[in-house]
Computed example of a mutant assay.
Amino acid sequence: MKHSILAAMALALSTGGLAAGEVAPSQVKYEDGAVMTSLTGTPGDAAEGRKIVGSKKLGNCVACHVVSDLADVPFQGEIGPPLDGAGERWSEADLRGIVSNAKMMFDGSMMPSFYKTEGFIRPGKAYTGKAADDTFGPLLSAEQIENVVAYLVTLKE
């Protein structure tokens, strides 16, 4: 029993805590900014994605984007384009790439990279004013990215 627990802990550490079949942030393959394959190997949950897009503690997409479907969420931003019709403007692969790392598709984008863990100039540890440590991870998990993409695909004009 003790050995199986230790083996499970070693496996979790070696994979960075990733679920089986999950693509690590540093292993995501971009093709002209799009990510063709799922980061988890399973379809996302649009209802959960809706929660993430509207949550000020998770995706906080509404800080920069207007989403009519989330009219109950106050103080929506106008920095980024409205997300209404996102499912018609972009493919699922495009949306996955944009949410993962918008800068791969839109060079000068101010949108944060939600699934990136390296290549930063000076990452900090949350809001502590200290340098990042070994707990530094992406803003959203692979599953959360897939959930957001599943929701955005449903937004038609």
Rank of each mutant, 00 (worst) to 15 (best):
A102K: 11
T128H: 09
K125P: 04
R96A: 00
E88W: 05
G119K: 12
S113P: 02
E118C: 10
R96T: 00
F106C: 03
Y115G: 01
L95S: 06
P74Y: 09
A86N: 06
W90E: 00
E92A: 11
S91P: 05
E78V: 15
P82R: 14
G85W: 13
T117F: 04
Y115F: 12
K103H: 12
I121F: 08
G85L: 14
G80H: 13
V67H: 01
S113K: 05
V99H: 09
F106A: 14
L83D: 07
R89M: 01
A86D: 01
K116E: 03
D94M: 12
R89G: 02
A126I: 06
K125D: 04
S100T: 10
G108D: 15
V73I: 15
G77H: 08
D107F: 13
D107M: 12
Q76R: 07
F120L: 08
L95M: 05
P112A: 09
R89T: 02
I121N: 03
A86R: 06
E92D: 01
I79R: 13
I79H: 11
G77Q: 06
V67W: 03
G108A: 12
L83V: 11
G77I: 10
G85P: 10
F75Y: 12
V99S: 08
G85E: 11
A93D: 05
E118D: 12
K116T: 04
G119D: 00
V99Q: 08
A86M: 01
M111K: 05
I98K: 05
E92F: 06
V73M: 05
M111R: 04
M104Q: 15
A126P: 02
Y115D: 00
R122N: 14
F114Q: 03
G87C: 03
G97I: 05
L83Q: 07
G80P: 10
A102T: 14
G87D: 00
F120G: 02
P123R: 15
A126Q: 11
G80Y: 14
E88F: 05
E92I: 05
D69N: 12
G87K: 07
G80W: 15
D94C: 04
P112Y: 10
V73D: 02
M104E: 13
D84Q: 10
N101W: 02
I79L: 13
V99F: 08
G85T: 15
E118L: 11
R122K: 11
L83H: 09
T117R: 09
M111N: 06
Y127M: 10
S68V: 09
L70T: 02
A102F: 11
S109H: 13
L83K: 11
E118A: 15
S100E: 03
D107K: 15
I79E: 11
P81V: 13
F106M: 15
V67Q: 02
G119T: 07
E78L: 11
I79S: 13
V99I: 15
G87M: 03
N101D: 13
A86Q: 05
K116R: 14
T117D: 08
K116A: 08
T117W: 03
F120T: 01
D84S: 10
V99T: 09
G108V: 06
G108H: 08
E118F: 13
P123L: 10
G124W: 06
P112K: 06
A86C: 07
I79T: 13
V67K: 07
I79V: 14
L83R: 08
D107Y: 10
T117A: 00
G80L: 14
L70R: 05
L95H: 06
S91I: 04
T117Q: 02
N101R: 05
S68D: 11
I121G: 07
K125V: 02
P82I: 14
